[in-house]
Computed example of a mutant assay.
Amino acid sequence: MSLREFGLPEFYFLLLSARWTLLLAIVAFVGGGALGLVIAALRVAPAAWLRHLAGGYISFVQSTPILIQLFMVYYGSAFIGLRPDPWPAAAITFCLNSGAFFGEIFRGAIESVSKGQWEAAKSLGLRYLATLRLVIVPQAMKLSLPPTVGFMVQIVKTTSVASLIGLSELSRTATAINTMTFEPILVFGTVSAIYFAMCWPLSVLGRHLERRVGDGRQRPVEL
Rank of each mutant, 00 (worst) to 15 (best):
80 I>V: 15
192 S>D: 00
51 R>L: 06
147 P>H: 13
64 T>Q: 06
59 S>N: 15
214 G>Y: 02
114 S>A: 14
88 P>A: 05
3 L>T: 10
100 A>L: 14
96 L>D: 00
17 S>I: 00
50 L>V: 03
143 L>V: 14
55 G>E: 08
18 A>Q: 00
63 S>V: 03
80 I>A: 12
198 M>T: 01
223 L>M: 04
85 D>Q: 13
161 V>K: 10
164 L>N: 02
54 A>G: 11
69 Q>E: 13
199 C>Q: 08
78 A>E: 11
223 L>Q: 11
38 V>Y: 04
80 I>M: 02
69 Q>I: 01
176 A>I: 15
66 I>W: 03
41 A>M: 11
49 W>S: 13
150 G>Y: 08
92 I>M: 10
188 F>L: 07
181 T>I: 12
97 N>W: 11
141 M>L: 15
176 A>V: 14
200 W>G: 00
116 G>F: 05
12 Y>F: 12
17 S>P: 00
221 V>M: 13
25 A>E: 00
60 F>V: 15
2 S>A: 15
138 P>A: 11
195 Y>C: 03
213 V>Q: 05
107 R>F: 05
179 T>Y: 08
144 S>K: 06
211 R>Y: 03
53 L>G: 00
89 A>Y: 04
91 A>R: 07
143 L>W: 01
32 G>F: 02
217 R>E: 12
99 G>N: 04
142 K>V: 15
100 A>S: 12
219 R>Q: 13
3 L>W: 06
168 S>L: 15
39 I>S: 06
143 L>T: 07
100 A>F: 09
194 I>Y: 02
31 G>E: 08
33 G>T: 12
153 V>D: 06
121 A>Q: 06
67 L>H: 09
90 A>G: 11
95 C>L: 13
78 A>Q: 14
57 Y>V: 05
92 I>E: 03
166 G>W: 04
103 G>R: 05
86 P>W: 02
207 R>E: 03
113 V>A: 10
190 T>G: 07
25 A>Q: 08
88 P>D: 04
189 G>W: 14
143 L>H: 03
199 C>P: 03
149 V>N: 11
77 S>I: 00
127 R>G: 15
45 A>F: 11
208 H>F: 05
138 P>L: 15
193 A>I: 14
182 F>H: 10
160 S>G: 12
121 A>T: 06
130 A>V: 11
25 A>V: 02
83 R>W: 01
184 P>H: 09
6 F>V: 07
151 F>E: 12
114 S>P: 08
99 G>V: 07
161 V>L: 14
214 G>W: 04
173 T>E: 13
208 H>N: 09
97 N>T: 07
33 G>P: 05
85 D>I: 01
148 T>V: 12
135 V>Q: 14
